[in-house]
Write a protein that binds this DNA or RNA. Sequence first.
DNA 1: TTCATATTTCCATAAACATGGAAATGTTTT
DNA 2: AAAACATTTCCATGTTTATGGAAATATGAA
Lengths: 123, 123
Amino acid sequence: MKSKNVVAALAALAQDARLAIYRLLVEAGPAGLPAGEIGKSLSIPAPTLSFHLAQLQQAGLVTRRRNGRQLIQAAAFDRMNAVIAYLTENCCGGDMSACATVGTVKCTPKSITRAKARKKRMR
Amino acid sequence: MKSKNVVAALAALAQDARLAIYRLLVEAGPAGLPAGEIGKSLSIPAPTLSFHLAQLQQAGLVTRRRNGRQLIQAAAFDRMNAVIAYLTENCCGGDMSACATVGTVKCTPKSITRAKARKKRMR
DNA sequence: TTCATATTTCCATAAACATGGAAATGTTTT
DNA sequence: AAAACATTTCCATGTTTATGGAAATATGAA
């Protein structure tokens, strides 16, 4: 991942409203949320919300698909994980004696494809 | 960690020069680097560098200690880890069936305390 | 104390960003 | 086709941020 893209992603998240939006989408998972719900949830006027969602999308942190008149927004987990990797890369010059790497969790939602397929089968 | 602090940390990193500085410090580990070396390494004029280092410190991502006339800068790993935790928190509403959490590495350098103590003993 | 080195503060300038009303654009329902 | 809904584009406004020269401050060395 290029530095330019990381800066863009960080800049996108470095703002009250957008950070709140992003976290809502992380919580929502691959299913995502329609823009309108986000706006209601956080009390953001439509034009302002639209501006922020565009920023998040341009930064690659959010993807969108249309469902009727709604535009469903979803967090792009891969991109977030790449940003985190970039930030912690080469820690302590890779010297394992100076730097303990401990196991932790990285959010990796199961692709929505399977969930969708399950829903379709249920109809 | 409060949203305000996360925004501050992300804003601090959302800039070419500062991201480069921060990564240099991650690589350097707890030993850190004097401001001057950073400036030379990245070709940043002193006043500009001073401005950026102040931003990083205010955001809590960098700590400083004086060594003679030099000011040694070091990455604040705890803070970075807290920011990452905030960003991935509550993924998929915590629904483990939708969200696979996979083991990865989190940079946790051994405290410099022990290294310092060892050096002192060697004198 | 005088000199050299390291870093900061001061400041002016230029550029980028956030906000939300009004009007425009798609999309579904009647 | 008209009405209703969801979202975007346009735009004027105010705010924040980055940059680096010149001068100030702090620390150590001669």
